[in-house]
Design a protein around this nucleic acid. Sequence first.
DNA 1: GTGGCTGCAAAGCCTTTGCAGACAT
DNA 2: ATGTCTGCAAAGGCTTTGCAGCCAC
Lengths: 139, 139
Amino acid sequence: MKNGKRVQERLREHGLKVTPQRKVILEVISKMKNHPTAEMIMQEIAQVEPDISTATVYKTLDMFAEKGLILRIKTDRDVMRYDPFINRHHHLYLDESDEIIDYEDEELNRLLEQYFRKKNIPGMVIEDYRVEIKAKKER
Amino acid sequence: MKNGKRVQERLREHGLKVTPQRKVILEVISKMKNHPTAEMIMQEIAQVEPDISTATVYKTLDMFAEKGLILRIKTDRDVMRYDPFINRHHHLYLDESDEIIDYEDEELNRLLEQYFRKKNIPGMVIEDYRVEIKAKKER
DNA sequence: GTGGCTGCAAAGCCTTTGCAGACAT
DNA sequence: ATGTCTGCAAAGGCTTTGCAGCCAC
């Protein structure tokens, strides 16, 4: 029950009521890679607990994103995607395959952190930033 | 007819047939700021040439984006947005107001250019990159 | 001439909504 | 006890599609 517990705590820490549905949803997406769509998430859920409704999944994902448990990912074509990995990281968008790959690099993070610390954008408070990298596979 | 001519050339340069609809659409979006939605674009178009159909606008915007005349902008909530400004620049996303503001800074561009020139991502060819900055207005 | 473009209307699809009943705290 | 969450089904809204006729080249 290690996971179950962790999930429960994470919900509570983020000020969310703990319900069976939320536990399942958070547990499932936490294991998913590749920035799943709502549909992919629902498929996974169906294998654990088939009776969670579409509406609930959508509402819950929204709620999670709002509370910072997951990230909504920007796409320019696709349906919505979600990202259970909330550390600072960047995204490689592969147009050919619709993949979105996490890109982590300490050097890049440092570079940007330094840049944004000393740079001020007048009238703005910067809350977060992320590099979106358009790339294709080498062949 | 200065604009008309420029628009025509831009279409041709990008390998597109020149049609009256495309001329109007490109001319209109080239003047728009604030990363308009398809709807906003259609409203503007309606004032110049009311008989262009929705389908044509969507198809044309897609085509333009594919050929690199404009950018499709990633959003995580919103409808699709388009950006007629295709130089290297970054985006400030203001969640509170749904605004997306262009952010240009030579220093940031240099920093990233340097970084990506020396950094290799195995198996990947980097085609483009852009920083998405989440911010809010200072008050 | 002909391949590509346009317009119309309809379809498609993902996501949201409204509401009544159930549940967590 | 009560404010919140869930599930259902239906609606909503943006975008795409199919197709016939038209146009740019």
